[in-house]
Computed example of a mutant assay.
Amino acid sequence: MQYIKYTISNTVAHWVRAIFIPKTVIKTINKLCAKFLFFGDTNDKHLHLISWDNTCKPRCFGGLGIQSIMAMQFAFNCCIIERFYNTRSPLIDFLLSRYYSPWKDKGSQYSKFWKNICKTAIIVRNKFKFNPKSKSKASIIWDHWCLGDSILNKFPDFQLINYCKDNDKLEDWIQNDYWCIPEYINGDIREHISSIPLDNIQNNFVVWDGKKMAYFREDYLEFFSNLEEVDWHCLIWHKNHSPRYSIYT
């Protein structure tokens, strides 16, 4: 158990941060880990009675707390989305110039790495909140900076996409901490946008669930947000628990 948690999982965590791991590879790693945990032999062909997905759930959800590779990828994608707007680096500048937004319609030419991030972005959309302000790299068309919605969804009748380019950023419409909306934009839309307060206090352009910064653990647990917490986990994983008996139970 210790070997899987602190050697195998930590090794895979480094891979997750560097490459996109195919599902077939994830399946193979999980299969080997399950055999090793339950039988101590990766060549054993016996069936085990507990699925590996259930084994990898956090303890509060009834699992053993082994890190799930899928959940780690999910959490890393959340970190990339946050860095996409709040930090500048060669990687982020490349992604920004090539893809514009993780909420932009996926194209067939997109890499598997970016498609995976877009898939995560759709799931956690409501967790990310935009703070319109100067120098914001948020996409005018695709990002939901318009009071929790994208401007295309807010005004579906107005063909904004005919007037704006994919690479137009929110910073183009904000100057000296004031809205500076182009004249070609419909009057009702301009009035609505002008009513959106500009946040010149918050340092980050995008925040996670109303917080200044999201920790990796919060992103990780969000992967299991559709599960219900079990009420007995504190009886097994208490402060003075014995690993041998807690794991068996």
Rank of each mutant, 00 (worst) to 15 (best):
M1V: 12
I4N: 06
I8C: 14
S9A: 15
S9E: 13
N10E: 14
N10A: 12
A13D: 11
R17W: 04
R17Q: 15
P22D: 06
K23M: 06
T24Q: 12
I29M: 07
K31R: 12
A34L: 06
K35E: 03
K35D: 00
L37Q: 03
G40A: 10
D41G: 07
D44F: 08
H46M: 10
H48W: 05
H48V: 14
C56F: 07
P58I: 04
F61G: 08
G63E: 01
G63P: 08
G65I: 04
Q67P: 02
Q67R: 15
Q73G: 10
C79S: 15
I80P: 01
R83T: 09
N86K: 11
I92H: 09
D93S: 15
D93G: 07
D93I: 13
F94W: 09
L96G: 09
Y99K: 03
P102T: 11
K104V: 08
K104D: 02
K104P: 01
Y110R: 07
S111N: 09
F113W: 14
K115N: 12
C118I: 00
A121I: 02
A121S: 09
V124K: 00
N126H: 10
N126K: 10
K129Y: 06
F130V: 03
P132C: 03
P132K: 07
K133N: 03
K133R: 15
K135Y: 15
S136K: 01
I140M: 09
I140Y: 00
I141V: 14
W142A: 01
W145Q: 01
L147T: 08
D149V: 15
S150E: 04
I151Q: 01
I151D: 04
K154N: 05
Q159E: 13
N162R: 10
N162C: 04
N162H: 11
D166S: 09
D166R: 06
D168V: 04
E171D: 12
D172V: 05
W173M: 11
W173E: 01
Q175A: 06
Q175H: 12
Y178A: 14
P182E: 12
E183W: 07
N186S: 10
I189T: 11
R190M: 09
R190D: 00
H192Q: 05
H192V: 05
S194K: 14
S195R: 14
S195C: 05
P197F: 12
L198H: 03
N200Y: 02
N200H: 04
I201Y: 09
I201T: 12
V207N: 00
D209H: 02
K211T: 06
K212I: 12
A214E: 00
Y215W: 11
D219H: 13
F223M: 10
S225P: 01
L227P: 04
E229P: 08
C234R: 13
C234D: 09
L235K: 14
L235M: 13
I236R: 00
K239S: 11
K239L: 11
K239I: 04
N240L: 08
H241M: 06
P243R: 08
Y248K: 15
